[in-house]
Write a protein that binds this DNA or RNA. Structure first.
Lengths: 136, 136
DNA sequence: AACCGTTATTCCCGAATGTATATAACTATA
DNA sequence: TATAGTTATATACATTCGGGAATAACGGTT
């Protein structure tokens, strides 16, 4: 008896595609994930890219995390992991200041987000095409 | 400081592709997984299909599990999960008898294995194609 | 100098997996 | 009837993952 796994984060204000792309056919679904791996594990995946988008939107790691139902601790670790693996940093953080600080994407960060979505869209089309012929 | 995750099973006698298909390009790899989901979670994925192949090869869940470095308990749970979600059973088990019992694939089971590998091969080609244009 | 909101960091905890281990149940064969 | 090798099942344990909470550091602004 296995309980349904809890979603990794709550979709909040935006209509969010699921982290697992899926295609249903007669009771079965072809699902899948893709991600880009760097020198030390995952570099960019669905959740990380959504996080980057939220950071760009809110200008803050903590607000981005909260908007996804993700702990700040986890979000920070993801940001750190991304920046440590990127050739050029994708995220710029600043501490202190009038508003306490903030975080924004670099140009490379915006390009990375766009690049990932491009591949992800093709992946969804792949699942769509191949999932149509499931018979078990 | 995160330790490299241990491989889910040891490749033993056969040359086994990794569970995560991957394509390298300039330090980054496009990796991914696909699986077929049924009424209650995963129905068939890479590891499950390899397990089915091993069962067909050895005629026993316990030997198949051992050959993959997987606990019998886990292998049994996977087999049970597969059969509970399949329209027609993919695996036939027998208890007792001269050799204590055994397990073999049904015709539907062999077809499922082949069907999954077909899609998986296409998926690897997809990763190969899309992974060639990674730039970050 | 005090304030304030955010980043940066640490420790503790619970959920989810999967291994290890032990044991019962089964049944053709000798 | 006893044997043997496998399936079937439960309990205990280790590991991993991420949330929660607490705290320090930071630095414009007032």
């Amino acid at each position: 008896m296995r309980r349904k796994t809890r979603p990794r984060f709550k979709p909040s204000n935006k209509d969010l595609s699921p982290a697992d792309a899926a295609v249903r056919k007669g009771g079965y679904e072809l699902k899948g994930r893709i991600w880009i791996e760097g020198t030390s594990g995952t570099f960019l995946g669905y959740g990380r890219v959504v996080l980057l988008e939220r950071i760009a939107e809110f200008g803050s790691i903590s607000k981005a995390a909260k908007s996804m139902g993700m702990s700040y601790r986890h979000a920070w670790e993801l940001v750190d992991s991304i920046n440590r693996q990127a050739r050029r940093p994708l995220i710029e953080t600043s501490v202190g200041g009038k508003k306490g600080g903030g975080t924004k994407l670099t140009e490379a960060g915006r390009e990375a987000v766009e690049g990932f979505w491009n591949i992800y869209e093709k992946f969804k089309r792949f699942l769509n095409k191949e999932g149509a012929s499931l018979q078990f």
